[in-house]
C-alpha cells in the first residue's frame, strides 16, 4: 500500500479519535456543571472585590487596546506604502495556479471558532456597555442572550479541545514538523521590527516569511491563549462559580468576572485587526476566501510566503 494512503488513514483516525474525545470531555463538563449545581453554594452576597487585581486587569486591557490600535496603524501604513507592488502582482497574477494552504480540518475548526467567537461578542460585549449597546440585549432578550452566549461558549470550547487533541496526535503520528510553522521564532521578531522600520521609512522591505508571518502567528496564539484558554476557563468559572468556590476565594471569583469582560474587549480588538488585515485591506477587499477554499494563488504565496513555497517545492 502506498505510504500516502497510510497517512490518509491515520489522518482520518486522528480526526475521529479527536472528535470522540471532544464529545466525551464536553459531556463530562456539562454533566459536572449540571449535577453539582445547588443554589446554597452560590457566591455569598458579602464577597468583596479585590481591587488591586481589578486595577492590574484594567491596566493590561488599556495597554492591550493601545498596542492593537498601534499595530493596525502600522499595518495601514505598510499596505499604503506597498500598494503599487500589490497592484503589479494583481495585474500579472495567474489566479488559476493554486497551492494548498489549509487542510479541511483547519477550515472546519476556523469556521466553528469564528462563528462561536463572533456570537460570543454579539451576546457578551453589549453587557459590558449597556448604555451604548443595550439595544442589542433588548433585541435578543436577556435570557435568550445568555443561553446563546453559553451555547457559543461550548462551541468555542469544543473547537479548542478538538484542535488541541488533533494537533497533539498529528504531531505524534503523522508529521513532527507540523508545529514548527506556528512556533514564534527570532525571525518573527526581526520581521516585526523590519515592518516597523519600513513604515518609518528607514528600511526597504525585504520579506522572507515561512507559512505564517509574524502577525498571523500573533493572531493564532492570541486566539489560542486568550479565547481558547483564558476566556473558556474564566467563562466556565463564571458559569458555575459554586463549583470553584472551594478552590478559589470568592473575592477572586468576582475579579475573574472583570478579567472575562476585559479580555473579551482585547479579544474583539484582536479580531478586528485580523479582519482588517485579512479582508479589508485594499488589495484583498471585500473578502479573501483562502481559509474557506483551503488554497491561495501560487503567485500571491510566492510574494508573501517565499520560504514556505520553496519548502513545498523542495518536498514535492
Amino acid at each position: 500500500m502506498p505510504s500516502k494512503l497510510i497517512i490518509m488513514r491515520n489522518k482520518n483516525q486522528i480526526g475521529t479519535i479527536s472528535f470522540v474525545l471532544t464529545i466525551l470531555i464536553l459531556l463530562a463538563i456539562l454533566q459536572y456543571v449540571n449535577f453539582q449545581s445547588s443554589p446554597e453554594k452560590v457566591i455569598p452576597d458579602g464577597a468583596v472585590e479585590v481591587l488591586w487585581v481589578n486595577y492590574i486587569i484594567e491596566i493590561i486591557v488599556a495597554f492591550g487596546t493601545i498596542g492593537l490600535f498601534s499595530i493596525t496603524l502600522i499595518m495601514y501604513r505598510k499596505f499604503s506604502k506597498s500598494e503599487g507592488q500589490h497592484q503589479e502582482v494583481e495585474k500579472t497574477a495567474n489566479k488559476s495556479s493554486l497551492i494548498e494552504r489549509f487542510s479541511p480540518i483547519q477550515i472546519i475548526v476556523h469556521a466553528v471558532t469564528g462563528i462561536s467567537i463572533l456570537t460570543l461578542y454579539l451576546t457578551g460585549i453589549p453587557l459590558l456597555y449597556p448604555e451604548h449597546l443595550g439595544w442589542i440585549t433588548d433585541l435578543i432578550v436577556l435570557s435568550r442572550n445568555m443561553f446563546l452566549h453559553r451555547l457559543a461558549g461550548l462551541g468555542l470550547l469544543s473547537a479548542a479541545i478538538y484542535y488541541l487533541i488533533y494537533t497533539v496526535q498529528y504531531v505524534k503520528y503523522v508529521d513532527k514538523g507540523f508545529a514548527k510553522n506556528i512556533i514564534p521564532t527570532l525571525t518573527d521578531i526581526k520581521s516585526a521590527i523590519s515592518d516597523i522600520l519600513f513604515v518609518l521609512g528607514k528600511k526597504e522591505q525585504k520579506y522572507e516569511s515561512h507559512k505564517f508571518n509574524w502577525l498571523e502567528k500573533v493572531d493564532i496564539w492570541s486566539v489560542a491563549l486568550f479565547d481558547g484558554l483564558i476566556m473558556c476557563v474564566t467563562g466556565v468559572i463564571i458559569w458555575a462559580p459554586w463549583l470553584f468556590s472551594s478552590l478559589i476565594p470568592t473575592s477572586y471569583i468576582l475579579s475573574i468576572n472583570v478579567l472575562h469582560g476585559g479580555f473579551a474587549v482585547l479579544s474583539l480588538c484582536g479580531i478586528l485587526l485580523h479582519f482588517y488585515v485579512v479582508h479589508l485591506t485594499p488589495h484583498r477587499f471585500p473578502m479573501d476566501f483562502s481559509i474557506f477554499t483551503g488554497t491561495v494563488p501560487l503567485q500571491e504565496a510566492e510574494e508573501e510566503y517565499p520560504l514556505w513555497v520553496k519548502e513545498v517545492g523542495d518536498k514535492s
Binding site: 469564528g114 463572533l118 456570537t119 461578542y121 454579539l122 479580531i271 478586528l272 473578502m287 483551503g294
Partner: peptide, 23 residues
C-alpha cells in the same frame, strides 16, 4: 464607535456564512 464595532461583528458573521457556503 461601539455600534460600528458591533456592525463589523455582524458583517464578519455574514462573511463567515458566505465562506462556509463555499467550503
Amino acid at each position: 464607535g461601539l455600534n460600528v464595532a458591533m456592525l463589523l461583528v455582524v458583517i464578519q458573521i455574514l462573511a463567515l456564512l458566505l465562506g462556509i457556503k463555499r467550503s
